[in-house]
Design a protein around this nucleic acid. Structure first.
Length: 417
RNA sequence: CGGGGAUUGGCGCAGUGGUAGCGCGCUCGCUUUGGGAGCGAGAGGUCGUGAGUUCAAAUCUCACAUCCCCGACCA
Protein backbone atom coordinates (compact mmCIF):
# COMPACT_ATOMS: atom_id res chain seq x y z
CA UNK A 1 0.00 0.00 0.00
CA UNK A 2 1.29 3.40 -0.92
CA UNK A 3 0.92 5.97 1.78
CA UNK A 4 -0.77 8.40 -0.56
CA UNK A 5 -3.54 5.86 -1.19
CA UNK A 6 -4.15 5.31 2.50
CA UNK A 7 -7.41 6.64 3.94
CA UNK A 8 -7.51 8.62 6.09
CA UNK A 9 -4.40 10.59 6.92
CA UNK A 10 -2.94 10.57 10.40
CA UNK A 11 -3.96 13.29 12.82
CA UNK A 12 -1.49 15.29 14.85
CA UNK A 13 -3.76 16.19 17.74
CA UNK A 14 -5.86 13.73 19.68
CA UNK A 15 -9.58 14.49 19.96
CA UNK A 16 -10.54 16.74 22.87
CA UNK A 17 -11.18 14.81 26.05
CA UNK A 18 -9.77 11.54 24.74
CA UNK A 19 -7.87 10.25 27.73
CA UNK A 20 -7.52 6.56 27.20
CA UNK A 21 -4.47 5.49 25.24
CA UNK A 22 -6.31 3.31 22.76
CA UNK A 23 -8.73 6.14 22.00
CA UNK A 24 -5.98 8.69 21.35
CA UNK A 25 -3.60 6.51 19.37
CA UNK A 26 -6.15 4.58 17.32
CA UNK A 27 -7.91 7.79 16.31
CA UNK A 28 -4.70 9.66 15.59
CA UNK A 29 -3.34 6.83 13.50
CA UNK A 30 -6.52 6.57 11.49
CA UNK A 31 -7.43 3.09 12.71
CA UNK A 32 -10.88 4.01 14.00
CA UNK A 33 -13.35 6.87 13.77
CA UNK A 34 -16.10 7.72 16.20
CA UNK A 35 -19.64 8.10 14.87
CA UNK A 36 -21.25 8.64 18.27
CA UNK A 37 -20.53 7.59 21.85
CA UNK A 38 -19.76 3.88 21.77
CA UNK A 39 -20.02 3.55 18.01
CA UNK A 40 -16.91 3.25 15.87
CA UNK A 41 -15.96 2.80 12.26
CA UNK A 42 -13.08 0.43 11.69
CA UNK A 43 -11.10 2.40 9.12
CA UNK A 44 -8.91 0.48 6.65
CA UNK A 45 -5.94 0.20 9.01
CA UNK A 46 -8.07 -0.79 11.98
CA UNK A 47 -10.01 -3.26 9.90
CA UNK A 48 -6.75 -4.85 8.81
CA UNK A 49 -5.67 -5.34 12.43
CA UNK A 50 -9.05 -6.71 13.47
CA UNK A 51 -9.07 -9.03 10.45
CA UNK A 52 -5.76 -10.49 11.56
CA UNK A 53 -7.08 -11.03 15.06
CA UNK A 54 -10.19 -12.61 13.57
CA UNK A 55 -8.15 -14.96 11.41
CA UNK A 56 -6.13 -16.20 14.39
CA UNK A 57 -9.32 -16.83 16.33
CA UNK A 58 -10.89 -18.56 13.32
CA UNK A 59 -7.96 -20.93 12.92
CA UNK A 60 -8.01 -21.96 16.56
CA UNK A 61 -11.78 -22.34 16.63
CA UNK A 62 -11.67 -24.53 13.55
CA UNK A 63 -8.91 -26.58 15.19
CA UNK A 64 -11.38 -27.55 17.95
CA UNK A 65 -13.76 -28.88 15.31
CA UNK A 66 -16.11 -25.91 15.43
CA UNK A 67 -17.85 -24.66 12.31
CA UNK A 68 -18.22 -21.03 11.28
CA UNK A 69 -21.59 -19.63 10.25
CA UNK A 70 -23.45 -16.33 10.50
CA UNK A 71 -26.59 -15.52 12.46
CA UNK A 72 -28.97 -12.54 12.19
CA UNK A 73 -28.71 -9.46 14.37
CA UNK A 74 -32.39 -8.59 14.35
CA UNK A 75 -34.24 -10.95 16.65
CA UNK A 76 -37.97 -11.50 17.12
CA UNK A 77 -39.27 -11.03 20.65
CA UNK A 78 -40.78 -14.53 20.66
CA UNK A 79 -37.48 -16.40 20.62
CA UNK A 80 -36.26 -14.34 23.57
CA UNK A 81 -39.49 -14.94 25.45
CA UNK A 82 -38.89 -18.66 25.23
CA UNK A 83 -35.84 -18.31 27.49
CA UNK A 84 -37.56 -15.72 29.65
CA UNK A 85 -34.85 -13.18 29.01
CA UNK A 86 -36.88 -10.67 26.96
CA UNK A 87 -38.37 -9.17 30.10
CA UNK A 88 -35.44 -9.71 32.47
CA UNK A 89 -34.53 -6.34 33.95
CA UNK A 90 -30.82 -6.52 33.36
CA UNK A 91 -31.38 -7.68 29.78
CA UNK A 92 -33.89 -4.90 29.08
CA UNK A 93 -31.34 -2.40 30.31
CA UNK A 94 -28.84 -3.23 27.61
CA UNK A 95 -30.91 -4.65 24.75
CA UNK A 96 -32.24 -2.34 22.08
CA UNK A 97 -35.89 -3.38 21.87
CA UNK A 98 -38.37 -1.67 19.61
CA UNK A 99 -41.31 -2.11 17.29
CA UNK A 100 -41.05 -2.13 13.57
CA UNK A 101 -43.51 -0.17 11.47
CA UNK A 102 -46.10 -2.98 11.64
CA UNK A 103 -45.89 -3.07 15.41
CA UNK A 104 -43.82 -6.24 15.53
CA UNK A 105 -41.51 -6.32 18.53
CA UNK A 106 -37.87 -7.01 17.76
CA UNK A 107 -34.52 -6.62 19.47
CA UNK A 108 -30.95 -6.15 18.36
CA UNK A 109 -28.57 -9.00 19.19
CA UNK A 110 -26.82 -8.72 22.52
CA UNK A 111 -25.79 -12.40 22.29
CA UNK A 112 -27.03 -15.50 20.47
CA UNK A 113 -27.85 -18.27 22.96
CA UNK A 114 -31.54 -18.10 22.07
CA UNK A 115 -30.88 -18.20 18.34
CA UNK A 116 -28.59 -21.22 18.64
CA UNK A 117 -31.09 -23.04 20.87
CA UNK A 118 -33.76 -22.33 18.27
CA UNK A 119 -31.48 -23.89 15.64
CA UNK A 120 -30.82 -26.90 17.84
CA UNK A 121 -34.55 -27.35 18.34
CA UNK A 122 -35.05 -27.47 14.59
CA UNK A 123 -32.09 -29.62 13.66
CA UNK A 124 -31.18 -31.82 16.63
CA UNK A 125 -33.47 -34.65 17.58
CA UNK A 126 -31.21 -37.53 18.51
CA UNK A 127 -28.10 -38.06 20.60
CA UNK A 128 -26.57 -38.96 17.25
CA UNK A 129 -26.87 -35.30 16.20
CA UNK A 130 -24.65 -34.14 19.05
CA UNK A 131 -22.24 -32.57 19.75
CA UNK A 132 -22.75 -29.33 17.83
CA UNK A 133 -20.05 -26.65 17.84
CA UNK A 134 -20.84 -23.51 15.88
CA UNK A 135 -19.53 -19.97 15.96
CA UNK A 136 -19.73 -16.69 14.18
CA UNK A 137 -18.14 -13.27 14.08
CA UNK A 138 -20.72 -10.53 14.19
CA UNK A 139 -21.83 -7.31 15.73
CA UNK A 140 -23.26 -7.21 19.21
CA UNK A 141 -25.41 -4.30 20.33
CA UNK A 142 -25.37 -3.48 24.00
CA UNK A 143 -26.83 -0.25 25.21
CA UNK A 144 -24.23 0.32 27.89
CA UNK A 145 -25.20 2.86 30.50
CA UNK A 146 -21.93 4.52 29.76
CA UNK A 147 -19.79 3.83 26.73
CA UNK A 148 -16.18 4.64 27.46
CA UNK A 149 -12.48 3.98 27.18
CA UNK A 150 -12.24 4.40 23.43
CA UNK A 151 -13.02 1.20 21.62
CA UNK A 152 -12.91 -0.91 24.80
CA UNK A 153 -16.56 -0.40 25.70
CA UNK A 154 -18.79 0.41 22.77
CA UNK A 155 -22.51 0.06 22.34
CA UNK A 156 -21.85 -1.85 19.16
CA UNK A 157 -18.81 -4.07 18.79
CA UNK A 158 -17.54 -7.14 17.05
CA UNK A 159 -17.62 -10.45 18.82
CA UNK A 160 -16.73 -14.00 18.06
CA UNK A 161 -19.19 -16.22 19.84
CA UNK A 162 -18.97 -19.98 19.87
CA UNK A 163 -21.75 -22.24 21.14
CA UNK A 164 -21.44 -25.91 21.93
CA UNK A 165 -24.15 -28.47 22.65
CA UNK A 166 -23.52 -31.87 24.23
CA UNK A 167 -25.25 -34.97 25.52
CA UNK A 168 -23.75 -34.78 29.00
CA UNK A 169 -22.04 -32.58 31.51
CA UNK A 170 -18.90 -34.62 31.14
CA UNK A 171 -18.83 -34.11 27.36
CA UNK A 172 -19.50 -30.44 27.81
CA UNK A 173 -16.63 -29.89 30.22
CA UNK A 174 -14.28 -31.89 28.06
CA UNK A 175 -14.91 -29.51 25.20
CA UNK A 176 -15.01 -26.52 27.56
CA UNK A 177 -11.43 -27.33 28.59
CA UNK A 178 -10.47 -27.70 24.96
CA UNK A 179 -11.83 -24.25 24.16
CA UNK A 180 -10.09 -22.81 27.21
CA UNK A 181 -6.80 -24.11 25.85
CA UNK A 182 -7.66 -22.78 22.37
CA UNK A 183 -8.29 -19.36 23.89
CA UNK A 184 -4.94 -19.41 25.64
CA UNK A 185 -3.31 -20.27 22.35
CA UNK A 186 -5.14 -17.45 20.59
CA UNK A 187 -3.95 -14.87 23.09
CA UNK A 188 -0.47 -16.27 22.99
CA UNK A 189 -0.42 -15.94 19.19
CA UNK A 190 -1.83 -12.43 19.42
CA UNK A 191 0.86 -11.51 21.91
CA UNK A 192 -1.43 -10.69 24.81
CA UNK A 193 -0.60 -12.07 28.23
CA UNK A 194 -3.78 -13.21 29.94
CA UNK A 195 -4.87 -14.87 33.17
CA UNK A 196 -7.83 -17.23 33.33
CA UNK A 197 -10.01 -15.77 36.05
CA UNK A 198 -13.11 -17.10 37.80
CA UNK A 199 -15.98 -14.66 37.59
CA UNK A 200 -19.73 -14.37 37.91
CA UNK A 201 -21.94 -15.17 34.97
CA UNK A 202 -23.81 -11.87 34.70
CA UNK A 203 -26.85 -12.11 32.47
CA UNK A 204 -25.79 -15.50 31.14
CA UNK A 205 -25.76 -17.88 34.07
CA UNK A 206 -25.91 -18.09 37.84
CA UNK A 207 -22.82 -20.26 37.82
CA UNK A 208 -19.26 -19.11 37.82
CA UNK A 209 -17.54 -18.65 34.50
CA UNK A 210 -14.02 -18.07 33.28
CA UNK A 211 -12.78 -14.74 32.03
CA UNK A 212 -9.60 -14.15 30.10
CA UNK A 213 -8.09 -11.07 31.60
CA UNK A 214 -5.18 -9.15 30.11
CA UNK A 215 -3.11 -7.50 32.83
CA UNK A 216 -3.13 -3.81 31.99
CA UNK A 217 -2.69 -0.95 34.40
CA UNK A 218 -5.40 1.10 32.68
CA UNK A 219 -7.87 -1.80 32.78
CA UNK A 220 -11.23 -1.26 34.43
CA UNK A 221 -11.52 -4.71 36.00
CA UNK A 222 -9.70 -5.72 39.16
CA UNK A 223 -8.57 -9.29 39.61
CA UNK A 224 -6.86 -11.12 42.45
CA UNK A 225 -4.41 -13.77 41.43
CA UNK A 226 -1.82 -16.01 43.00
CA UNK A 227 1.82 -15.44 42.22
CA UNK A 228 2.64 -19.12 42.63
CA UNK A 229 -0.22 -21.01 40.98
CA UNK A 230 -3.03 -20.45 38.48
CA UNK A 231 -5.61 -19.28 41.04
CA UNK A 232 -7.31 -16.07 39.93
CA UNK A 233 -10.66 -14.47 40.71
CA UNK A 234 -12.49 -11.37 39.66
CA UNK A 235 -12.92 -8.83 42.44
CA UNK A 236 -16.69 -9.24 42.24
CA UNK A 237 -16.49 -12.77 43.65
CA UNK A 238 -13.29 -12.63 45.71
CA UNK A 239 -13.59 -12.20 49.45
CA UNK A 240 -10.11 -11.16 50.32
CA UNK A 241 -7.38 -8.67 49.74
CA UNK A 242 -3.89 -8.32 48.37
CA UNK A 243 -1.32 -10.11 50.52
CA UNK A 244 -3.71 -12.87 51.62
CA UNK A 245 -2.72 -16.52 51.31
CA UNK A 246 -3.85 -18.30 48.17
CA UNK A 247 -6.72 -20.69 49.01
CA UNK A 248 -5.26 -23.17 46.55
CA UNK A 249 -1.52 -23.25 47.30
CA UNK A 250 -0.90 -20.83 50.21
CA UNK A 251 1.06 -18.53 47.87
CA UNK A 252 0.70 -14.74 47.97
CA UNK A 253 -2.35 -13.07 46.42
CA UNK A 254 -1.76 -10.02 44.25
CA UNK A 255 -4.28 -7.53 42.87
CA UNK A 256 -4.09 -6.11 39.37
CA UNK A 257 -6.08 -4.05 36.93
CA UNK A 258 -7.08 -5.88 33.81
CA UNK A 259 -9.14 -5.85 30.64
CA UNK A 260 -11.52 -8.70 29.95
CA UNK A 261 -10.78 -9.92 26.45
CA UNK A 262 -12.61 -13.24 26.52
CA UNK A 263 -15.20 -15.11 28.55
CA UNK A 264 -16.42 -18.69 28.54
CA UNK A 265 -19.68 -19.83 30.11
CA UNK A 266 -20.64 -23.41 31.05
CA UNK A 267 -24.35 -22.79 30.85
CA UNK A 268 -25.45 -26.33 31.61
CA UNK A 269 -29.02 -27.38 30.84
CA UNK A 270 -30.67 -24.09 31.76
CA UNK A 271 -31.32 -22.88 28.22
CA UNK A 272 -32.37 -26.32 27.03
CA UNK A 273 -34.94 -26.60 29.81
CA UNK A 274 -36.14 -23.00 29.63
CA UNK A 275 -36.62 -23.17 25.88
CA UNK A 276 -37.75 -26.81 25.90
CA UNK A 277 -35.18 -28.03 23.43
CA UNK A 278 -34.38 -31.70 24.05
CA UNK A 279 -32.73 -34.63 22.32
CA UNK A 280 -33.70 -38.29 22.46
CA UNK A 281 -31.22 -40.66 24.10
CA UNK A 282 -30.59 -44.32 23.23
CA UNK A 283 -33.76 -45.31 25.05
CA UNK A 284 -35.86 -42.82 23.17
CA UNK A 285 -36.29 -40.54 26.17
CA UNK A 286 -36.15 -36.74 26.01
CA UNK A 287 -32.99 -35.37 27.63
CA UNK A 288 -31.85 -31.76 28.09
CA UNK A 289 -28.95 -30.52 26.03
CA UNK A 290 -25.78 -29.45 27.82
CA UNK A 291 -24.85 -26.07 26.52
CA UNK A 292 -22.00 -23.57 26.70
CA UNK A 293 -21.00 -20.31 25.06
CA UNK A 294 -17.62 -18.73 24.50
CA UNK A 295 -16.85 -15.15 23.49
CA UNK A 296 -13.93 -13.03 22.37
CA UNK A 297 -14.25 -9.42 21.24
CA UNK A 298 -11.77 -8.79 18.43
CA UNK A 299 -12.32 -5.03 18.51
CA UNK A 300 -11.72 -4.94 22.24
CA UNK A 301 -8.62 -7.08 21.77
CA UNK A 302 -7.28 -4.45 19.39
CA UNK A 303 -7.88 -1.76 22.00
CA UNK A 304 -6.31 -3.84 24.74
CA UNK A 305 -3.24 -4.40 22.58
CA UNK A 306 -2.77 -0.65 22.23
CA UNK A 307 -3.15 -0.21 25.98
CA UNK A 308 -0.36 -2.74 26.49
CA UNK A 309 1.91 -2.05 23.54
CA UNK A 310 2.67 1.63 23.05
CA UNK A 311 5.12 4.33 23.96
CA UNK A 312 4.89 8.12 23.98
CA UNK A 313 5.21 8.21 20.20
CA UNK A 314 2.60 5.67 19.23
CA UNK A 315 1.53 2.08 18.90
CA UNK A 316 3.87 -0.92 18.87
CA UNK A 317 1.92 -3.76 17.23
CA UNK A 318 2.81 -7.40 17.86
CA UNK A 319 3.95 -8.84 14.54
CA UNK A 320 1.07 -11.33 14.33
CA UNK A 321 -1.59 -8.62 14.13
CA UNK A 322 0.25 -5.58 12.74
CA UNK A 323 -1.51 -4.03 9.74
CA UNK A 324 1.75 -4.26 7.80
CA UNK A 325 5.03 -5.98 8.47
CA UNK A 326 7.22 -3.30 6.92
CA UNK A 327 6.88 0.47 6.89
CA UNK A 328 9.09 1.50 3.99
CA UNK A 329 10.17 5.13 4.29
CA UNK A 330 11.58 6.79 1.20
CA UNK A 331 13.66 9.90 1.82
CA UNK A 332 15.38 12.13 -0.75
CA UNK A 333 12.83 10.92 -3.26
CA UNK A 334 13.42 13.93 -5.47
CA UNK A 335 16.58 12.15 -6.59
CA UNK A 336 15.55 9.81 -9.34
CA UNK A 337 17.94 7.00 -8.47
CA UNK A 338 16.73 6.87 -4.90
CA UNK A 339 13.10 6.90 -5.92
CA UNK A 340 13.77 4.04 -8.35
CA UNK A 341 15.53 2.07 -5.66
CA UNK A 342 12.75 2.63 -3.12
CA UNK A 343 10.09 1.57 -5.60
CA UNK A 344 12.14 -1.47 -6.49
CA UNK A 345 12.40 -2.51 -2.84
CA UNK A 346 8.66 -1.92 -2.47
CA UNK A 347 7.84 -4.12 -5.45
CA UNK A 348 10.24 -6.88 -4.47
CA UNK A 349 8.94 -7.05 -0.90
CA UNK A 350 5.38 -7.23 -2.16
CA UNK A 351 6.27 -9.96 -4.63
CA UNK A 352 7.92 -11.84 -1.78
CA UNK A 353 4.59 -11.73 0.06
CA UNK A 354 5.59 -9.13 2.63
CA UNK A 355 2.89 -6.62 3.57
CA UNK A 356 4.42 -3.20 3.02
CA UNK A 357 3.26 0.32 3.69
CA UNK A 358 5.37 2.54 1.46
CA UNK A 359 5.67 6.20 2.41
CA UNK A 360 6.24 7.62 -1.05
CA UNK A 361 5.38 11.22 -0.20
CA UNK A 362 7.79 13.61 -1.87
CA UNK A 363 6.65 16.81 -0.22
CA UNK A 364 7.01 15.79 3.41
CA UNK A 365 10.02 16.05 5.69
CA UNK A 366 11.83 13.07 7.14
CA UNK A 367 10.68 13.99 10.62
CA UNK A 368 7.05 13.79 9.67
CA UNK A 369 7.52 10.41 8.04
CA UNK A 370 9.30 9.03 11.09
CA UNK A 371 6.63 10.42 13.38
CA UNK A 372 3.93 8.71 11.32
CA UNK A 373 5.88 5.45 11.30
CA UNK A 374 6.16 5.55 15.09
CA UNK A 375 2.48 6.39 15.45
CA UNK A 376 1.26 3.59 13.19
CA UNK A 377 3.47 1.06 14.96
CA UNK A 378 4.41 -1.26 12.10
CA UNK A 379 7.08 -3.71 13.42
CA UNK A 380 9.85 -2.98 10.89
CA UNK A 381 10.80 0.44 9.61
CA UNK A 382 12.95 0.31 6.50
CA UNK A 383 14.52 3.52 5.19
CA UNK A 384 15.82 4.12 1.71
CA UNK A 385 17.72 7.40 1.30
CA UNK A 386 20.97 9.00 0.18
CA UNK A 387 22.48 7.92 3.46
CA UNK A 388 21.62 4.25 3.10
CA UNK A 389 23.61 3.88 -0.13
CA UNK A 390 23.34 0.28 -1.34
CA UNK A 391 21.94 -0.98 1.99
CA UNK A 392 18.63 -0.63 3.76
CA UNK A 393 18.32 1.00 7.15
CA UNK A 394 16.24 -1.30 9.31
CA UNK A 395 14.81 -0.46 12.71
CA UNK A 396 12.38 -2.43 14.79
CA UNK A 397 9.60 -0.36 16.29
CA UNK A 398 10.26 -1.71 19.77
CA UNK A 399 14.03 -1.15 19.69
CA UNK A 400 16.24 1.92 19.53
CA UNK A 401 19.12 0.67 17.41
CA UNK A 402 19.21 0.59 13.63
CA UNK A 403 21.11 -1.76 11.37
CA UNK A 404 22.10 -1.57 7.76
CA UNK A 405 21.13 -4.68 5.83
CA UNK A 406 21.03 -5.87 2.26
CA UNK A 407 17.65 -6.72 0.77
CA UNK A 408 18.30 -10.45 1.19
CA UNK A 409 19.33 -10.01 4.81
CA UNK A 410 16.12 -8.07 5.49
CA UNK A 411 14.02 -10.75 3.83
CA UNK A 412 15.73 -13.44 5.88
CA UNK A 413 14.97 -11.48 9.02
CA UNK A 414 11.31 -11.14 8.13
CA UNK A 415 10.94 -14.80 7.25
CA UNK A 416 12.50 -16.04 10.47
CA UNK A 417 10.29 -13.98 12.74
C1' C B 1 -29.15 7.31 35.90
C1' G B 2 -26.16 10.56 39.98
C1' G B 3 -21.70 13.91 40.11
C1' G B 4 -17.99 16.86 37.37
C1' G B 5 -16.01 19.10 32.84
C1' A B 6 -16.66 20.56 27.82
C1' U B 7 -19.21 22.43 23.11
C1' U B 8 -16.22 28.79 18.73
C1' G B 9 -13.53 26.94 10.81
C1' G B 10 -11.67 19.89 9.18
C1' C B 11 -8.67 19.16 14.22
C1' G B 12 -6.69 21.59 18.78
C1' C B 13 -7.72 26.15 21.24
C1' A B 14 -8.11 31.82 22.72
C1' G B 15 -11.82 35.28 23.18
C1' U B 16 -16.40 38.10 30.48
C1' G B 17 -21.55 42.60 26.76
C1' G B 18 -20.04 46.45 21.24
C1' U B 19 -20.74 42.76 14.89
C1' A B 20 -14.84 36.55 15.71
C1' G B 21 -9.16 35.27 16.27
C1' C B 22 -4.58 31.90 16.78
C1' G B 23 -1.94 27.19 15.77
C1' C B 24 -2.22 22.86 12.85
C1' G B 25 -4.48 21.05 8.50
C1' C B 26 -6.33 22.45 3.39
C1' U B 27 -5.46 25.29 -1.78
C1' C B 28 -1.70 27.98 -4.97
C1' G B 29 3.50 29.63 -5.73
C1' C B 30 8.67 29.48 -4.43
C1' U B 31 12.36 27.48 -1.14
C1' U B 32 13.45 23.13 1.78
C1' U B 33 14.29 17.46 2.93
C1' G B 34 17.35 12.34 8.70
C1' G B 35 12.74 13.53 13.78
C1' G B 36 5.96 16.58 12.82
C1' A B 37 10.18 22.69 7.84
C1' G B 38 10.43 28.35 5.79
C1' C B 39 8.37 32.64 3.13
C1' G B 40 4.25 34.69 0.49
C1' A B 41 -0.85 34.53 -1.18
C1' G B 42 -5.80 32.28 -0.40
C1' A B 43 -10.36 29.36 0.96
C1' G B 44 -13.10 28.13 5.18
C1' G B 45 -17.31 29.92 11.07
C1' U B 46 -25.53 32.23 11.22
C1' C B 47 -19.76 30.69 18.02
C1' G B 48 -24.28 22.99 19.82
C1' U B 49 -30.03 23.97 19.79
C1' G B 50 -34.20 26.74 21.67
C1' A B 51 -36.10 30.50 24.62
C1' G B 52 -35.10 34.85 27.67
C1' U B 53 -32.45 39.57 29.58
C1' U B 54 -30.32 43.92 26.89
C1' C B 55 -30.03 49.48 22.50
C1' A B 56 -26.48 45.40 21.68
C1' A B 57 -25.12 38.31 23.44
C1' A B 58 -19.80 33.67 21.54
C1' U B 59 -19.89 36.35 26.33
C1' C B 60 -25.42 37.02 31.14
C1' U B 61 -30.16 33.56 32.56
C1' C B 62 -32.99 29.10 31.87
C1' A B 63 -34.03 24.61 29.35
C1' C B 64 -32.48 20.86 26.13
C1' A B 65 -28.88 18.10 23.15
C1' U B 66 -24.14 16.02 22.37
C1' C B 67 -19.13 14.49 23.86
C1' C B 68 -15.43 13.28 27.76
C1' C B 69 -14.24 11.84 32.89
C1' C B 70 -15.76 9.60 37.89
C1' G B 71 -19.62 6.32 40.00
C1' A B 72 -23.46 2.28 39.56
C1' C B 73 -23.62 -1.67 35.49
C1' C B 74 -21.17 -4.49 31.91
C1' A B 75 -17.68 -8.80 26.11
Amino acid sequence: MKYLDLFPKTIKQAPAGAESTNHRLLVRGGFIDQLMAGSWTLLPLGYKVVSKIVQIIREEMDATGAQEMLMPLLHPKEVWERSGRWNKTDVKEIMYQFEDIRGREVGLAITHEEIVMDLLGKHVSSYKDLPVKVYHFSTKFRNELRARSGILRGREFMMKDLYSAHVSEEELFKYYEEVKQAYLKIFQRIGLEVRVVEASGGIFTDKYTHEFQALVESGEDIIYYCQSCDFARNKEIFNGKEGDKCPQCRGVIKAANSIEVGNIFPLGTKYSKDMKVFYKDEKGQDKPIWFASYGIGPTRVMGALVEVFHDEKGIIWPESVAPYQVHLVGLDLSETQIRIKAEDIYNRLQTAGVEVLYDDRADVTAGEKFADADLLGVPYRVVVSKKTEDKLEVKKRNRAEVEFLSYDELLGKLKTT
